[in-house]
Amino acid sequence: MKDIIDRIKTKYTISEVVEQRKNLSFVTVSKEQAISIITFLRDIEGFKHLVLLTAADWIENDKFQLTYLLNNPTEKIDLGVRVFISRENASMESAHHLWEQVATYQRELKEMFGIDFPDSPGVDKPFILEGWEDIPPYRRDFDTKQYSEDTYFPRPGRESNDPAEYMKKKLYPNE
């Protein structure tokens, strides 16, 4: 794995390398170089299989983290390519030309996080949600509890508990 990362470093800039385990590492790269690095990994380094593409919301840093998890089926190693993009007008270059399933991932990310992928086929079409008018629901600032209280009528006579408090009372009554 170290050799591969060294080879990437000769061509591109990597800001952080984390070796999670022997066959899994994460590298952080810039938004501008990401698709080029992923293409290099796919075509030259044998990372032919895209395991997943997902995002995490680091609202405190005002950033979204995009993770492209690539797998090399021959060497049996995984490399996660992480890209941090701004939450404000979040947008990323599309990778739909590299793998067929990427368009679906990008469509979901647009809907759930509001990250745009210009030119990705069908990226603006609703995927899971239909008629959604609130902020994208997987963003950290979307309040699920508030949403359900506002949207669904509370049933009379229904007792509601805070799950953490309830379990604590059950399991450790004396604490």
């Binding site: 609703p126 995927f127 899971i128 949600l129 239909e130 629901p137 997987y138 950290r140 979307f142 699920t144 509890k145 799950p163 953490a164 379990m167």
Partner: peptide
């Protein structure tokens, strides 16, 4: 077309402790 069974598991987990 999907979405008939969406329960938002991934989001729910962000609001639960690991054991929950």
């Amino acid at each position: 077309h999907v979405g008939y069974l969406h329960r938002g598991f991934e989001k729910l987990m962000e609001r639960r402790k690991y054991i929950q």
